[in-house]
Amino acid sequence: MDKFEKFSGIAAPMPLVNIDTDMIIPKQFLKTIKRSGLGVNAFAEMRYNSDGSEVGDFVLNKSAYREASILVAGDNFGCGSSREHAPWALSDFGIKVVVSTSFADIFFNNCFKNGMLPIILPEEQVEILMNDAEKGSNARMEVDLEAQTITSSDGSVFSFDVDPFKKHCLLNGLDDIGLTMEKSSSIEAFEKKLEIERPWL
């Protein structure tokens, strides 16, 4: 996994509440064999007409937001089915951070597993950032995970909480696998023991 570095990016406003994983990635895209490449299908049913053309007023279709790397969203983002395709699709689109007042549990955890940072802020702060995001492509926000801050385009700084262990993993680009591999000596020792105690395996 890539290290999560300090960055500044365009934030897209999605004030809708209860954006579920079916909206983020509809079920017809689950037959894929890749976790990459789902970005074009992210929000497919909101983003495209049935003939495949773009829905003009969907936020990510607007020229100002095509390069967005931050989403500022309504309450309870990522609810519904547990599909890991949802964070895969967002990440493939280029989203690194989602800001909301609340997230569904599984989606929240899946974000970290895929190098993304979900930020929970109080309602009034989300509202300020939502308004800031409305300004379009010239309004870049800055996210500093080390300092646990997000800074709006006019310089207002908001602090957020993050689980220290998850922060450590994101900053160092450690996924679960990377972390487990740090314990490979334990695994090797276990395998040696296994060879003696249960050699038929």
Binding site: R35, E84, N110, K113, D176, I177, T180, M181
Partner: peptide
């Protein structure tokens, strides 16, 4: 889940 499948394959 799929992330865990990868985890088991690797470790």
């Amino acid at each position: 889940g799929t992330s865990e499948v990868e985890h088991v394959l690797a470790t």
